[in-house]
Write a protein that binds this DNA or RNA. Structure first.
Lengths: 236, 236
DNA sequence: TGCATAACCTGCTGA
DNA sequence: TTCAGCAGGTTATGC
């Protein structure tokens, strides 16, 4: 049916998962007259374990949500913001019945300390409170496409030239063509050598590196742990 | 009948007072069949003013609560978390009738930074999440009585000898007779010089000082501010 | 009378 | 199991 990249709120203390309205109304329609209190949905994960979520509509926020049972799933699967949950429906043998499945995967692997990320910024190791879900971009789709075109990103200053600065998602960043930056570390090199193409490719000239901050110490802001109380000053 | 040390929620925006189940079922039994929606209880305070509270059972939280009318009482009496409300029943002259009374008092005055408290520990300036209301002991009743006998305290190791250690409320503490501790600070001295007797009294030999931690800096755990996110490592 | 706010009610989680 | 705490929805109330 559909996937959702979960937000910090989806896996946080609110104990609810917001179902995007278009998916909710298409795949889990609620009869407003008969199903006043929402309904219980039974899902099955790939291990065969059953998960029952209460599904309802919140008038206050005009949104569809999974509530009861959801937090257990988050804890059991150790979901973090940016991870992806996938809802699937399987039509059963009997025809009229269908089984619901839920699956999940960790968010796409990105450098742990993403001072440099080709083509996209992944703010998940930064302050979750300031992270915008729209910022999480699947590396598979960003090849050869300028960053500022993606995921609801709103660049205040769009500069496509290496060495220039731009402000993206409210964060000051430095841009450079892949292969021209000289201070990329081993870790960053190996990471961008993964799913992201590095210089020499046919489309390399339209990719950026985005530099977030300049700290290299192991004890800097980027390496601090903490679930929700962590805060950062990025390149101020 | 019973007292309750009110929690932040009891005097906050939830506009309800949770009645501990054992007291609720003993003193305010609800007939689940006839009184589906709870009942109205009339109390009288010491000024003769009448207070009517709705009293009911919440299935969702499995708890008994005073709801309607309670917030007016909180505001009128200026109740704060830690204050004590007292419910009393007086059998009337007619025999069959009984009058209900409600009384209240401010929480016992304790030192702001209670590193040393004679005869009792007052953890309320510490992390509220870990504080057990049973730990609040009225200073007036503790003279010459060993600490571990009071207020629902459960000492895992009971040691009545100065200099020995004990574990009370899950906290490791050091015990000493009053007057024998040498590193009591000025602040602590003046505090214990208040409502609590210090050495030289006729019963001083049976009183303790309880040492919580050993930090004296102004920047230590004990002086940190914060409503609910504070946590401690006590004498580990 | 209508709106904005407060009070009240319910459901849920986590310790 | 109890209950503190949070959040959201609904009802009452004052301007």
């Amino acid at each position: 049916m559909f996937d959702k990249v979960v937000t910090p709120s989806d896996v946080g203390k609110l104990n609810r998962l917001v179902i995007p309205k278009q998916h909710a109304e298409r795949y889990f329609p609620l009869d407003s007259s008969s199903n006043e209190k929402g309904l219980l949905l039974n899902f099955e994960d790939l291990t065969g374990k059953s998960w029952r979520f209460r599904y309802s509509y919140w008038n206050s926020s005009q949104s569809y949500v999974m509530t009861k049972g959801w937090s257990r799933f988050v804890k059991d699967k150790k979901l973090d913001a940016g991870d992806i949950v996938s809802f699937q429906r399987c039509v059963g043998d009997s025809g009229s019945n269908s089984r619901l499945f839920i699956d999940w995967r960790k968010r796409p692997k990105v450098p742990e300390h993403p001072h440099f990320v080709a083509g996209a910024m992944f703010p998940r190791s930064l302050d979750q409170r300031n992270a915008n879900p729209a910022m999480v971009v699947d590396p598979l789709v960003i090849e050869s496409v300028p960053v500022m075109m993606h995921g609801g990103a709103r660049a205040q200053t769009v500069v496509g030239t290496a060495g220039k600065r731009m402000r993206l998602f409210g964060v000051d960043m430095e841009c450079g063509e892949i292969g021209t930056m000289t201070n990329s570390t081993e870790e960053e090199s190996s990471s961008s050598g993964g799913s992201l193409p590095r210089g020499g490719g046919s489309s390399s000239s339209s990719l950026f590196q985005l530099r977030l901050g300049s700290s290299t110490s192991e004890d800097d802001h980027f390496t601090k742990k903490g679930k929700s109380s962590l805060s950062f000053d990025l390149d101020q």
